[in-house]
Design a protein around this nucleic acid. Structure first.
Length: 437
RNA sequence: UCCCCUGUAGCUCAGCUGGUAGAGCGGGUGGCUGUUAACCACUAGGUCGGCAGUUCGAGUCUGUCCGGGGGAGCCA
């Protein structure tokens, strides 16, 4: 039996190093095809997929009988020698010498064909095992690691901001509310940005990466109720520095994914040329230029109005690569953004629009570093000043010019993987009408 | 919150102008030596989302409730 054999347990991703040798694979049965005398078992071990080939003539009868008991998604151990696929160069498979079923699977709900979204989401915990979902999570992981690597290389430190907060940092969006002992209402964070602004005075350049929550009743392919956001904040960075570092980060992430996840991108059928062609500098237009372009294209957008979903796709027709939209009307942007010195009606903010009409990827701005201007903006917005004394302190004790930006991880994953809906980018999506499983 | 679509076997769906249900996949059984959602044969499996109404008769028409999807707005 398999457990008596001394073959080394190896991961499928390393299989090519074992050509000609006998190895042990532990994993799950992805699919099986068999005839009377030969059986092909596709096995998944988490690190990759491999096909095991069992010839009846080469095996003990007991082992052949075991193979015929296998069901999809059963957990198994297979011992066999690694050989190249007779028809596919560079693809390795396993010539089975022994098989042991660890646990036989009941008929697996997710079948080898298309399913509807309701069924798949209801079975999300099982759906995650499928090839496409596997590829998406691998790419998500690369994006996370690439982000950490990038910031470490730029002398940032990673800090953690609170998830439970006393009040909103942007006020405009709806927050999840909870009772906080005897202190009254608390809220789930929708961004760690304000806390990062306090931390730059200790560390210069910082970023956070954590879950944020929006209690908006959004019901689109671009929204989740719970998602992972990266915020970066940099002391002594002005608007232009802010733009430049965003370009470097995006390109660095893309390069890593292209390097590490070729197999995954292929599984997803992603057009790699669309990613490969991305390089700095990105194109840049002001909000009012965008408005003019959009009006010519038939959009009903006007000055001092944010872009609608249709506007985003119209712009993607004109600009093929990532696009920065700068110099936003102050009245439609957050209170903490720094005014343009030549016209106080505009702020030094930028939104980075993803190519292919996917929409906003990154939002960033230079921050207002003047105490009085910041305070007056907060009063205009009717913010509870007492709750934000700590934030105002950042401008009282050695304020510096600074900038920051943030991306929504799942949006980045959606764009890079080229998938249709954001819900597939997070293992267990929380949506308006669904939080199971 | 608003607009549109949808709910039939475990899953994906078909079911024309109303006459008490079908296919493919999956399951089971048998066959097949290189398969790629393998294939072939046989087989089991359904209070047609709930309730009410029209009708001799409703999966099919009407109302209502519930579930789901897509989009808008809001935003990342």
């Amino acid at each position: 039996m398999v457990e008596d054999v001394m073959s080394e347990h190896v991961l499928v991703c390393n299989i090519k190093d074992y050509a000609g040798k006998s190895v042990l694979i532990k994993g799950w049965v992805h699919n099986q095809r068999s005839s009377g005398k030969i059986s092909f078992i596709q096995v998944r071990d988490g690190s990759g997929y491999i096909q095991a080939v069992a010839n009846r003539g080469d095996l003990k009868e007991e082992c052949w009988n075991t193979i015929n008991e296998i069901t999809r998604e059963s957990s198994i151990m297979i011992e066999g020698s690694v050989s190249e696929h007779p028809k596919k160069k560079g693809v390795f498979e396993l010539q089975v010498s022994d098989v042991m079923i660890i646990a036989k699977s009941e008929p697996f709900p997710i079948e080898k064909k298309e399913h509807g979204p309701d069924f798949l989401l209801q079975n999300r915990h099982l759906w995650l095992r499928s090839k496409k979902q596997w590829a998406i999570q691998r790419i998500r992981n690369t994006i996370i690691c690439a982000t950490y690597d990038f910031f470490m290389g730029e002398n940032f430190i990673k800090v953690d901001t609170p998830i439970i907060t006393a009040s909103s940092c942007e006020g405009t969006t709806t927050l999840f509310e909870l009772e906080y002992f005897d202190l009254g209402k608390a809220y789930l964070s929708q961004s760690g940005q304000l806390y990062l602004e306090a931390l730059i005075s200790a560390h210069g350049k910082v970023f956070d990466f954590g879950p944020v929550f929006r209690a908006e009743k959004s019901k689109t392919r671009k929204h989740l109720v719970e998602f992972w956001m990266m915020d970066a904040e940099m002391a002594f960075y002005e608007h232009e520095d802010n733009i430049a570092i965003q370009e470097r980060l995006v390109c660095s992430i893309i390069r890593q994914v292209l390097k590490i996840n070729q197999k995954e991108l292929e599984i997803l059928g992603r057009d790699i040329s669309k990613l490969d062609s991305i390089s700095p500098p990105f194109e840049r237009i002001t909000h009012s230029e965008a408005v003019k372009i959009l009006q010519k294209k038939g959009s009903g957008i006007t000055e001092d109005v944010d872009l609608g979903a249709n506007d985003e796709s119209l712009l993607a027709d004109v600009f093929k690569g990532p696009l920065f939209i700068e110099r936003w009307p102050a009245k439609i942007k957050a209170f903490y953004m720094k005014r343009c010195p030549d016209d106080y009606n505009y702020v030094k903010a930028s939104d980075l629009m993803a190519p292919e009409g996917f929409g906003e990827l990154i939002g960033g701005s230079q921050r207002e570093d003047d105490y009085d201007l910041l305070l007056s903006r907060m009063k205009e917005e009717n913010m509870p000043i007492d709750d934000f004394q700590w934030y105002l302190d950042t401008r009282r004790y050695g304020s510096v010019p600074h900038s920051g930006f943030g991306y929504g991880l799942e949006r980045l994953v959606t764009w890079i993987t080229g998938i249709e809906h954001i819900r597939e980018t997070i293992p267990f999506p929380r949506m308006l009408y669904r939080f199971y499983p």
